[in-house]
C-alpha cells in the first residue's frame, strides 16, 4: 500500500463510521463515535500500518455538550502518514474504551488523561493517577478547577494549599520594549 492509498482505503472500509472529515494544511482529521473507537483503532494499527500512537489529548469544552473531546494522533512509520482521530464524550458518560492493548504506549497517556481530566478508560489494565498522588480529590486540568488550586489533605502522603495569586496573572506583553519591561510580571490583566 502506498501513502496515497492509505486514507482512501480507510474510508472505504470504515467510511460509514466516520462522522466528519476535515482537511487542514494536508492534515486529516476524522471525527468518530466513541463506540467505534476500538474497531477503527484496531483497523488502523493492523491493516493500515499506523503503528505509532504519538499522543492522546483531552480537551475540556466547558459549558458545551458533549463536554469532553479526546484526540488521538496516529503516525505510520513505514509510510510517513499522520492521522488524527477525534471523539466526543459527555460528562455523564465520562468514559471511553481503552486502546492500551492496541498501542501499549496508550497506557500512560490514558492514565494522564484520567489524572488531569477525570475521564475513565474502560478495561484499562492499571487506571491509577500518574502525576498526582492516589487520593488527590480533584482533576486539575478541568476548566472549573481554579488556577491557584484547592486545599486538600492526605495525612502522611501529601497536602495542597491555595496558591497566593496577588497581582496575577503573570503575563508577557508583546511589544518593542526592552527585555526588562517585557518580562513576565504581575500585571493587572487590562494593561
Amino acid at each position: 500500500m502506498t501513502r496515497q492509498e492509505l486514507l482512501p482505503s480507510l474510508e472505504k472500509s470504515v467510511g460509514e463510521k466516520i462522522q466528519n472529515k476535515t482537511e487542514f494544511r494536508s492534515e486529516t482529521t476524522y471525527t468518530i463515535l466513541a463506540a467505534n473507537l476500538r474497531e477503527i483503532a484496531k483497523f488502523c494499527r493492523e491493516e493500515l500500518s499506523f503503528d505509532y500512537l504519538i499522543d492522546i489529548t483531552s480537551i475540556d469544552n466547558f459549558g458545551e455538550e458533549p463536554r469532553f473531546e479526546i484526540v488521538y494522533e496516529l503516525y505510520s512509520t513505514p509510510l510517513g502518514v499522520h492521522l488524527r482521530l477525534k471523539l466526543h464524550i459527555s460528562e455523564d458518560v465520562g468514559a471511553v474504551d481503552t486502546v492500551s492493548d492496541i498501542w501499549p504506549t496508550a497506557n500512560w497517556h490514558e492514565r494522564e488523561i484520567y489524572d488531569m481530566m477525570g475521564i475513565k478508560f474502560n478495561s484499562h489494565p492499571d487506571l491509577r493517577r500518574i502525576l498526582m498522588w492516589d487520593g488527590y480529590p480533584f482533576f486539575p486540568l478541568r476548566k472549573e478547577f481554579p488556577l491557584e488550586g484547592l486545599p486538600s489533605e492526605m495525612p502522611d502522603v501529601a497536602f495542597t494549599k491555595v496558591t497566593p495569586m496577588e497581582g496575577g496573572p503573570f503575563v508577557t506583553m508583546p511589544s518593542t520594549a526592552n527585555a526588562k519591561d517585557r518580562e513576565p510580571r504581575a500585571r493587572p490583566p487590562e494593561l
Binding site: P140, E148, G149, L150, T160, K161, T163, P164, F170
Partner: peptide, 10 residues
C-alpha cells in the same frame, strides 16, 4: 518561584 500553581509548594 514562577510556579504559581496547584501542584507546587510555595
Amino acid at each position: 518561584g514562577m510556579y504559581r500553581s496547584y501542584a507546587v509548594l510555595q
